[in-house]
Design a protein around this nucleic acid. Structure first.
Length: 287
DNA sequence: GCCCAGGAGTGTG
DNA sequence: CACACTCATGGG
């Protein structure tokens, strides 16, 4: 019987389904009863909504669990204030009531970097599969048959041939080279860089271009001004703003329109565009 | 079987 | 700088 701990937290607003299920992060799983379970910094965390509170079930638990969850869900963000600022844009204003509890998450920088390098040109179920595989093979067991995401030192032991057998496709080589070109210390140094310099530094890494650099800046390094643009976002910008162009042009468009909260705007639009493709239930429109 | 995927790297115009 | 082509493969 593993050690186990329960506690209640108040992080508002928060919609677990929207926040953990929208493709920002890949290791949370929803069970039929609506609980979300995932590995976080060596803990297995289960989250469930209890009115305006969330119940946190952690094992092994410990004094750091509350801070861990608060950090991951960015409890410090004043989301209503962010949404009031973004509501100056008429397109966002109409849909914001439907995504009140969609928050940006804060991932571990290394995990985020690897995850989004693997995420290139793959769909979300496959990305989850790739990440599960490398976690099973190279991460440390933390209970219930779940492994932590492999640390840099653990993943660095994998040969290129081994990684190729993890179903990563051409991404295996990126990951192998990535391990050689960065380490925990370099990541620690990068945390201090201003956004644009961080972005340029990330782009020097193998497998990291504009889009991955923006994802890692946003979800890993917590830079809310980052605005990742993938195929879904290109569609959203074309459909809702009649805006097309190169990555640079779209990025500058977003920066001028959404400013310091571009990352939140991106996640709202991304969430909506995928809904739109799925069942037509889009919540943002330009009409 | 076909199509597409939270793109990046490389070479060319 | 902008575009075209290639990369390897699982999930819908």
């Amino acid at each position: 019987m593993r050690a186990r701990m329960k506690l209640a937290m108040n992080i508002e607003p928060l919609d677990l389904d929207q926040t953990l299920g929208c493709g920002q992060t890949f290791r949370w799983h929803r069970s039929a009863d609506g609980c979300w379970t995932g590995p976080l910094d060596g803990q297995i965390i289960r989250l469930s909504a209890r009115g305006t509170n969330i119940e946190v079930d952690a094992h092994p638990g410990g004094p750091g669990v509350r801070a861990l969850v608060a950090s991951h869900l960015r409890a410090e963000d004043d989301v209503p204030k962010i949404q009031r600022a973004l509501a100056r844009d008429p397109v966002l204003r109409r849909g914001l009531p439907h995504v009140k509890g969609l928050r940006i998450v804060k991932m571990d920088e290394w995990e985020c970097l690897v995850s989004f390098v693997l995420a290139t040109y793959a769909n979300i179920p496959r990305i989850s599969g790739m990440i599960d595989t490398i976690s099973e093979r190279y991460g440390s067991p933390i209970g219930d048959g779940v492994n932590a995401f492999p640390r840099h030192s653990q993943l660095s032991k994998a040969s290129s041939a081994e990684l190729a057998r993890c179903g990563l496709g051409y991404r295996a080589n990126y990951l192998r080279e990535l391990c050689d070109e960065i380490d925990d210390h370099a990541i620690k140094q990068m945390k201090r860089l201003p956004f644009e310099r961080l972005r340029e530094k990330l782009k020097e890494l193998p497998g990291v271009g504009d889009k991955v650099a923006d994802c890692v800046s946003l979800f890993g390094f917590g830079r809310l001004e980052a605005f990742p643009i993938d195929v879904w976002m290109e569609r959203a910008l074309a459909r809702l703003y009649r805006k097309k162009g190169t990555y640079r042009e779209l990025r500058e468009f977003a920066a001028s329109k959404f400013g310091q909260y571009a990352g939140y705007a991106q996640e709202y639009l991304y969430f909506n565009e995928r809904l739109n493709a799925g069942n037509g239930a889009c919540v943002f429109s330009n009409e």
